[in-house]
């Protein structure tokens, strides 16, 4: 936003509440690392020193859903696990976003077999599908940036008493 530059010029700043809210929301996305299998290891690498998710304001990985607004589903979701994932998603406060990390969560991936859910969009609203098996850490960071862009376009009225899944945020703009 270039806050400092503006403030030194006039000493004040005009903006919309909407824009301010969206800006603060997008700059501190707290992910809920739903690490289920192999992709979770790459998600750990993103938190590690080489890729360092802290550069994007999201290093606060909380393992309790109640403090998070972005769920990264990393790993194969089986039918048995799907109920747990759904329950955790329901516990997250609105507004919330979901990244389906990896081929497994997006479409079942290489597991065309009886226990694996063929894509978590069958029971969760997904915002970003992330390709790769596993996606490289840079790719996950890219997804995070895209989610931030998406959050940056939200307005306060988007969240009025409606679950986010019913909103089409991008088209509202």
């Amino acid at each position: 936003m270039g806050l400092e530059a503006k403030l030194t010029q006039d000493g004040f700043l005009t903006t919309k509440i909407d824009a301010l809210l969206a800006w603060s929301r997008k700059s501190s996305v707290w992910p809920m690392p739903m690490g289920i299998s192999c992709c979770a290891i790459e998600m750990m690498a993103v938190g590690g020193p080489k890729y360092d998710i802290a550069r994007f304001g999201s290093e606060v990985m909380r393992f309790t859903p109640r403090q998070c607004d972005l769920m990264i589903v990393a790993g194969t979701v089986t039918y048995k696990m799907s109920h747990v994932v759904k329950k955790i998603y329901d516990q997250m406060p609105d507004p919330k976003w979901v990244i389906a990390m990896g081929a497994c969560t997006s479409s079942g991936g290489m597991y065309r077999s009886y226990p694996v859910v063929q894509g978590i969009d069958q029971f969760l609203p997904v915002d970003i599908y992330l390709a790769g098996c596993p996606p490289r850490p840079d790719n996950l960071l890219n997804a995070l940036i895209q989610i931030q862009e998406k959050i940056g376009r939200t307005k306060g009225r988007d969240f009025q008493n409606k679950p986010l899944s019913e909103l089409n945020v991008i088209q509202n703009n």
Binding site: T76, T78, Y111, R112, S113, Y114, P115, V116
Partner: peptide, 9 residues
């Protein structure tokens, strides 16, 4: 919770 049916596959 992560049974993926390897042996069947």
């Amino acid at each position: 919770y992560l049974h993926r049916g390897y042996e069947k596959m």
